[in-house]
Amino acid sequence: MRAESRSGLLLSAPYTAFLLLFALFPIGFSVVLVLLKWDLVTPPSFAGLDNLQHLVADARFWQAIVNTFVFLAIHLPLQVIVALALAWSLNRPLLLRSFWRAAFFLPVVISGAAVTILWSALYATDVGLINGVLARLDLGPVPWLTDPAIAMPAIAVMATWKNVGFYVVIYLAGLQNVPQSCHEAIELEGATGWQSFRHVTLPLLKPQTLLVVTLSTINGFQLFIEPYVLTGGGPLRRTLSVVLYMYRNAFSYQKMGYAATLGLALALVIAVVLVLQRRVIGSAEES
């Protein structure tokens, strides 16, 4: 028994050290940083509640939160609808079934940095692929990334394209658990295909929908490389994301205390939004 204890401690010791250094210490220190003013060059000084007061009054932070909600308002419904439609199309005997699935999944495995560069070329006003296609249809060039009203929706569409294949696979797994007999029973009652989808399939897919919404929301709050590369947060700060603002506070402005405060605030916002979503999707079943 003593030998087992010893090997257990020995084998888990590196992991324990890792958790202390890179998980528990950062979590604890994030709260300490909120109370500090620190540029990493001169020693940190105690700042009391300055960072929190600044946060509450900081127009850029609130703009970034609003931007994220604009993003989510487009991204979430689009993600769910496109993923459901594609999964539903694939959930039948098909020629080249694994080819279709692999095609939709391809952008998921590509680095976000590469996808963002690719989309900067697709969205380019003069030489972009999308405006090139529009020109063929005699439609004028759209300033996708330079119009304040269009830039964030454009990023939301891009993020949907990047991630939807992942959610297709999740919905496909869910669809395969819907028994065929359920559809047959309701169709015997005279229900149309749509009614059967709406009243049988959709409610049964609720766990998957909750997962899709939760993961997409977390992704939305992590938006960074897309605005960083495509717009730099502009035009008129309409694509500034919280993580991009946090990165700038840490890296460009050397404000560690405030950057950590932004991180803590973001974590709280994510927690609240996820709880609310769970409530809303949970109660949609009862009605």
Partner: peptide
Amino acid sequence: VLLVPAQLTLIPTYTL
């Protein structure tokens, strides 16, 4: 640890 968002630990880990 899995429940803690990465954004929370990003800056403290950076200072470390």
